[in-house]
């Protein structure tokens, strides 16, 4: 069972103060949207890939692409026809399907989406949920919102587990020596519905139980809430300075370009 997106480690990103990482997460996400320059977004992208490769490992660099590849395929197929302009590479009648502008726009979107996925992947791989919550509380995010986040992160792996259990149950719903029939794509999609309905029902059933559990933990009490965990001093300050310098550098670069 998957229990967390966080993977224990000892890399310099793991050791970076989670408040700094949270700041960088927001900064890069916004940065990807405030510039249209492919050169700048590519630089951001390469920098994020460098961070992933040097902290999680080379294999980790493929993870963002793996996560969103169906979306990237859609982007690659649907974007070019909507951005005609420049040299035309493919047309049907009067309709321009692939042109220079279309390709540039597609590249920009692919780099942007993959980069943003990469920075989120890096953040959640190297930051424990407790550190994230403490950082959010440090930034004065209300307790109720951090609690929702905790519960969401706690339940997403649980739902993946439920989905696996239900699909496993489906595999076993056949008689011994029954004829093995090739299942069509249409039937596969049709069979997916009862699975999703079952997962949905179980998730909905978890709502009142969760609410009960929260009330049994005093949630709803009018007393001012105290804190058990406090954010502790994080380690490698020079590396954090390095990251800050990188931010400044990218900002200067985007201004020049």
């Amino acid at each position: 069972m998957i229990t967390s997106t966080y993977q224990n480690g000892n890399s310099y990103i793991h050791k970076t103060d989670p408040r700094m990482k949270l700041f960088l997460l927001v900064f890069f996400t916004v940065s990807f949207f405030i510039t249209d320059s492919i050169s700048v977004t590519s630089l951001y992208f390469l920098f994020i890939m460098f961070l992933i490769g040097s902290s999680i490992g080379i294999k980790g660099m493929a993870a963002p692409v793996k996560t969103i590849y169906p979306l990237l395929i859609f982007v690659a197929l649907l974007t070019p026809p909507f951005h005609p302009g420049g040299t035309v590479y493919l047309r049907i009648g009067s309709h321009i399907l692939v042109s220079n502008n279309g390709i540039m726009e597609t590249l920009r979107l692919i780099i942007r989406f993959t980069g943003i996925t990469g920075i989120f992947f890096l953040f959640f791989r190297t930051t424990s949920i407790d550190d994230l919550i403490l950082s959010l509380r440090w930034f004065h995010v209300p307790f109720t919102i951090t609690l929702i986040l905790t519960i969401a992160i706690r339940y997403i792996p649980h739902m993946i587990y439920l989905y696996t259990s239900v699909t496993d149950a489906h595999k076993l719903r056949k008689n011994w020596n029954s004829k093995e029939e090739k299942i069509s794509f249409k039937t596969r999609i049709k069979n997916l519905f009862p699975v999703l309905v079952s997962v949905l029902i179980q998730s909905i059933k978890a709502i009142p139980t969760l609410a009960m559990s929260l009330e049994l933990k005093g949630f709803g009490s009018k007393r001012p809430r105290s804190r058990y965990m406090t954010i502790h001093q994080y380690y490698s300050f020079p590396l954090q300075l390095f990251l800050l310098s990188a931010i400044v550098l990218t900002v200067i670069l985007s201004a020049i370009l």
Binding site: P224, S226, Y228
Partner: peptide, 29 residues
């Protein structure tokens, strides 16, 4: 127990109700 456990660390799970009641950190620890 899976229906009752909410947090992602054992000590914070135990701390949760005491935090709700506003107990001091030293007492909770």
């Amino acid at each position: 127990p899976d229906e009752q456990i909410i947090t992602t660390r054992c000590d914070t799970e135990i701390a949760f109700p005491m935090e709700s009641l506003g107990w001091e950190r030293t007492i909770m620890t």
